[in-house]
């Protein structure tokens, strides 16, 4: 595939990679008060793409920080169509992915959701509670609409299954860096580089490690193997604590700097 055929999210990551850099994808919870401004600030701080969470009432893959941000966003009236609508009106120069749980998409209707993503200018979806076994119906709708589905690969995924995961995957591969849910950790789990390496051995898709990446140092360390990182809870905690786009952008910038230094 030539670079011009790629959908925006993957194209942006591949461009960063082919210029010798490492990819930075911050996660932000959609629908929090002032979330659009936060997105703009993070976009200009060196993100290669942004993962926007559509909050769900029962996020089983998420730890306390993203649970809290989800509850706050829901209390502020966040809805899937509201967030997609907000995204369609943003022009931040960085491609977008949405991350949400499958019931919200199922309820919306798989085809309608995929079409709404396209209209909102979102080219990739991450659905952490939709493994290969259950991906068929959604992926059919997403493929038809021209939306990529990012699959997760976990430390527990056996080799044979890893091949099937990357085959079904689009945009990038989300390597779950540790056994556990989202949340900050003191140090990089040993499993992070292991899963990144296993994936690098079997796919040309960008391999980004997420879950537990909490500091610029950890990001740089895992990127000795991986093509990039997804950073969630560490950023969202600062969103919740400061509410300040500038300080959140500064924090994201520190990841950019660490990755550029290598």
């Amino acid at each position: 595939m030539s670079a011009s055929d790629l959908l925006p999210f993957q194209a942006s990551l591949e461009a960063r990679r082919s210029s010798g850099g490492k990819c930075l994808v911050p996660y932000l919870t959609g629908g929090l008060p002032g979330w659009e401004l936060m997105l703009e600030a993070v976009a200009s701080a060196g993100a290669d793409g942004i993962e926007v969470g559509i909050p769900f009432s029962d996020p089983v893959m998420d730890g306390p920080i993203i649970q809290e941000s989800s509850e706050l966003a829901l209390a502020a009236g966040a809805t899937p169509p509201g967030i997609l609508d907000g995204l369609s009106r943003l022009d931040i120069g960085v491609p977008l992915a949405v991350m949400t749980y499958v019931n919200l998409v199922y309820r919306f209707g798989y085809e309608r959701f995929a079409d709404s993503m396209v209209k909102a200018g979102v080219s990739a979806a991450i659905l952490p509670d939709m493994p290969l076994e259950e991906a068929g119906d959604w992926c059919g709708a997403a493929d038809a609409a021209g939306v990529q589905t990012v699959m997760l690969a976990a430390p527990t995924t056996p080799d044979e299954r890893l091949l099937r995961v990357v085959e079904r995957c689009g945009g990038f591969v989300y390597a779950v860096g540790l056994l556990g849910i989202t949340g900050e950790r003191d140090s990089l789990a040993a499993s992070a580089k292991v899963i990144a390496k296993r994936l690098k051995d079997v796919t040309d898709l960008p391999v980004l490690v997420g879950v537990g990446i909490s500091t610029p140092e950890q990001a740089a360390e895992v990127c000795e193997v991986a093509d990039g990182v997804v950073v969630g809870s560490a950023i969202v905690r600062r969103v919740l604590e400061t509410g300040s786009p500038e300080s959140v952008a500064d924090f994201v910038g520190s990841f950019r700097e660490a990755l550029d230094k290598g």
Binding site: V60, P128, P131, L152, T156, V165
Partner: peptide, 11 residues
């Protein structure tokens, strides 16, 4: 069905 995070599927 089996709508769970990938981490749990092998288990």
């Amino acid at each position: 069905g089996m709508f769970v995070p990938e981490t749990l599927v092998p288990a």
